[in-house]
């Protein structure tokens, strides 16, 4: 008991230096079913401490966007509860809307209006007026490198510029909680790196709590202090990227078979090896874990060869979030992402 408490307090200090306070976001048992009986959320729960960058990681169709829609008052859950900035999203929707900023998956920029006009209208909607509004708009345009293009119609903006304007629009009213749904999807690598810097800066310098959804493992690994892995509408694992990865002891071994028909035979011979754990097969790729990958691979290869199974490639690596996902969701992230939209 004492041990647990100590552990918890250590964890608190490592994730945020501020004193324990109300969570900035709390979702409890959210359920949402769409027409045609598609269950998007299946008792999804998680909480986000104030000031943290929290990642919702999952393949396409896992329920991340639905979660964001509910937390931002756009959509309503069939059942379950959610609080954002201490306010109930169903009973106090209007006040929640004042407290949050949203950068949706779709842009939300009016392409027929200029950057300045977009920002100004956004500010007015939140009650900013006069010189205060003008100052805030100019400040954001400058900070996001849009001052040169401020009076151009946004139809002429590049993808990266539009995304930056999107973020600026979400910040115009100084929100305390910021939602970003797939903020870097469709951006080129350079624009993506810039966006990552900006997200990290917002949390660090302005103390904004950020919930971001992503289906890029690398993005979650880099940005999120804590993350929840979502699969089929549920949270299957939660923790810091490091915690999640360190739960997987040893090395990860991926073996790609030359022929997919050999998969079940390979699985049965390898599962007899003591050195290999958590053997999972996904079409023609075998995933397994071993305490010492380098010495286990030759044994595994010899076993496969004597069984007449040809191997196309083998890799040994430290566990990645992909492996974490595989462990909890029972299928590889890439597979789920491709077949995930339902």
């Amino acid at each position: 008991m004492i041990l647990v408490e100590t552990l918890n307090s250590v964890r608190h200090q490592s994730s945020s230096s501020s004193q324990p306070e109300l969570p900035a976001i709390e979702a409890r048992n959210l359920v949402k079913t769409y027409r045609g009986d598609v269950r998007a959320l299946d008792r999804l729960s998680f909480r986000v401490e104030a000031g943290a960058i929290f990642g919702l990681l999952g393949p396409n169709g896992a329920g991340k966007s639905t979660t964001v829609k509910i937390l931002t008052t756009l959509s309503r859950p069939d059942s379950g509860e959610a609080r954002v900035a201490g306010l109930d999203v169903l009973r106090d929707a209007e006040r929640v809307r004042h407290a949050i900023g949203c950068i949706g998956q779709k842009s939300g920029v009016d392409s027929e209006a200029t950057g300045r006009e977009n920002l100004t209208l956004q500010g007015r909607v939140y009650g900013l007026r006069g010189t205060e509004l003008k100052r805030r708009v100019a400040e954001l345009l400058e900070r996001f490198g849009l001052d040169q293009a401020a009076d151009r119609v946004t139809r002429t903006y590049s993808g990266g510029m539009q995304r930056r304007l999107d973020v600026a629009m979400g910040l115009v009213h100084h929100p305390s909680v910021l939602f970003m749904d797939e903020p870097t999807t469709g951006l080129d690598p350079e624009a993506r790196a810039d966006m990552w810097k900006e997200i990290a800066r917002l949390a660090r310098e302005e103390g904004i709590t950020i919930l971001l959804t992503t289906h890029y493992l690398e993005e979650a690994d880099r940005l999120a202090q804590r993350l929840a892995i979502v699969d089929r509408g549920r949270v299957v694992a939660e923790g810091s990227p490091e915690e999640l990865k360190s739960e997987l002891r040893g090395d990860t071994i991926h073996m790609e078979l030359a022929q997919a028909e050999d998969a079940s035979k390979a699985h049965s011979v390898l599962s007899r090896l003591e050195e290999l754990r958590e053997l999972v097969i996904d079409t023609r790729t075998l995933y397994a874990r071993a305490d010492r990958g380098a010495t286990t691979v030759p044994i595994a290869l010899a076993t496969l060869e004597s069984a007449g199974v040809k191997v196309a490639s083998v890799t040994v690596a430290r566990p990645s979030l992909d492996d974490v996902y595989l462990r909890y969701a029972g299928r590889s992230f890439r597979e789920a992402d491709q077949g995930g939209s339902r």
């Binding site: 949203c102 779709k106 842009s107 920029v109 009650g127």
Partner: peptide, 16 residues
Amino acid sequence: RDLDLGVMDRFLVSPV
């Protein structure tokens, strides 16, 4: 057009 651009959703999550 506003729905496709995401402009409508952005307004609906604001206090407009």
